[in-house]
Simulated assay, not measured.
Amino acid sequence: MAAIANLQPDKNQIEIVSKLYLYGSEATDEIGGLITDEINRMYNEPQAMVEFEGKLMKVVFNISYKLISTAEAMLRAAINQNFRNNYIRIENENHITRSFMGFGLGDNVGHWLTTDNLGVSTTAAHEFGHSLGLDHPTQVDFRGSATPPPIMAPRGSIVDPQYQWNPQAIAGEFGGTMNPKYRKVTAEEVRLILQDLSFANDKNLHIGQISNTLFDKTGSPTRWLS
């Protein structure tokens, strides 16, 4: 999911703006509201700060959505050059049985499943992190950290008992891995999104990439228009 980072020195903040164009048989206003509410809430919650020219700047996320038909998605994606615009297909299943983003970290397309409890399970916020270039952590054992697992922790991560599917289960065994609902966005993850960007010559910077390659209902890439 691509985005635009807007430097706002008069407000001492950097605003990250992204718009999700939702299409597919399960795309509804209810889903759109749940997804964007989850992403905005979770990424703004840590109130992350980054340093710019000797000043601490607050990072603010402003994510919105619009429902469009598959035909309109085809037309828009065929000509899109705006890093703010992302095209997410919403269905209840696909051939890999999970929500995913497109072609490499930072891509502006995805195929998300309602069976992943979008908007109430942290899945949308996790996939949003991939879209902004965040990968899974290299280590997935978070026991002893005294904090909830980070938003980019993958399913199957090892966590303290209170964050497991079953707190009584043995770590790593059935029920003894991370329940994704406990994931939280950390300030460090927000800083990682911005770490390689420089506002030296421009107050509006691009995050991610734009392939504009849409998906069919099963999650296979398709190019209806060139």
Rank of each mutant, 00 (worst) to 15 (best):
G106I: 00
V60T: 14
N166G: 12
R98M: 12
D116K: 01
I90Q: 01
K19Y: 08
K55N: 15
V109S: 08
L225G: 02
L7F: 06
I79H: 13
Q195H: 10
K203V: 10
P46W: 01
I31V: 15
R76Y: 11
Y182C: 01
T138A: 14
D135P: 09
L113C: 06
N12V: 06
D135E: 12
L132K: 15
A153E: 07
P150N: 02
G129Y: 02
K184I: 01
G175T: 06
P180L: 02
Q139C: 07
A200T: 08
T177W: 02
Q47D: 13
E30H: 09
I16F: 08
K11E: 15
R98N: 12
I63F: 11
G110K: 07
Q139A: 13
V120D: 15
P150C: 03
I151W: 00
P154G: 04
H136E: 02
I151P: 00
N85R: 15
K203G: 07
I31M: 02
T114H: 09
F61R: 03
E53S: 14
V109P: 03
N201C: 00
A153T: 02
K58V: 15
D196W: 06
R84P: 01
Y23P: 04
D135S: 13
V120A: 12
T138M: 14
M178N: 05
N117P: 04
V190S: 02
G54A: 09
I39G: 02
L22T: 13
D216I: 05
N92W: 07
A78N: 09
D107Y: 00
H206Y: 13
K217I: 13
G32H: 05
Q8R: 12
S69K: 07
G33W: 04
D107T: 00
S220M: 14
L214R: 08
V159I: 01
R76E: 10
